[in-house]
């Protein structure tokens, strides 16, 4: 792939328009991190396996390592920086902390975005549905139980 030819376009990330000028073959992950400077989104496997790079595209989860940045123009991109509400943590963030679902923290942004998308389409998921919703996100520390509990606790809170 020739990566030398550049292309200028705008990406809307967390409600803000960012003009970028990057190679046509650049993935969305590297543009979000290196051009826009939002480093909450992580590069793990860089191969569509681990989910550390998860972002939302018009509300749907996408592996940003394997999505062309140029193809995301005109869509609303949400990163972990965008789920926070002012100075308040999103309930998912707070509950993952409180349940002990964070150890090294590398998978956490991707987990939060997958869980965010899941709760948007299913407000009271069963444990099995949470596990399916998070099935594209690997965590090598926690054993998942506490992350799943945090998502279910968030669903209960949002219902109350």
């Amino acid at each position: 792939m020739s990566t030398s030819e550049r292309i200028a376009f705008t990406l809307k990330v967390n409600g803000t328009d960012y003009p970028v000028d990057v190679e046509q073959g650049r993935n969305l992950l590297s543009v979000i991190r290196s051009e826009i400077g939002l480093t909450g989104t992580k590069e793990g496997c860089d191969d569509c396996e681990c989910g550390a790079c998860m972002v939302l595209l018009d509300g749907q989860p996408v592996n940003s390592c394997s999505y062309l940045a140029v193809q995301a123009q005109g869509r609303a991109i949400t990163t972990v920086e965008g789920v926070i509400d002012g100075d308040e943590m999103h309930p998912l963030q707070r509950n993952i902390l409180e349940e002990g679902g964070v150890q090294c923290g590398f998978c956490t942004p991707g987990m939060i975005l997958s869980a965010h998308a899941l709760l948007a389409r299913n407000s009271s998921p069963s444990e099995e549905e949470v596990r399916i919703g998070l099935s594209g996100n690997l965590c090598r520390c926690t054993g998942y139980a506490k992350i799943v509990a945090a998502v279910q606790r968030t669903a209960t809170e949002l219902h109350a």
Partner: peptide, 26 residues
């Protein structure tokens, strides 16, 4: 290119280079 889940991953694996001319149909 629709979702790109085969095309983009395949290009990185060296299976086939990302085509120079793409039309997004998504």
């Amino acid at each position: 290119i629709a979702g790109g889940t085969d095309l983009v991953v395949g290009a990185r694996h060296g299976k086939a280079a990302l085509p120079a001319n793409l039309v997004a149909i998504d």
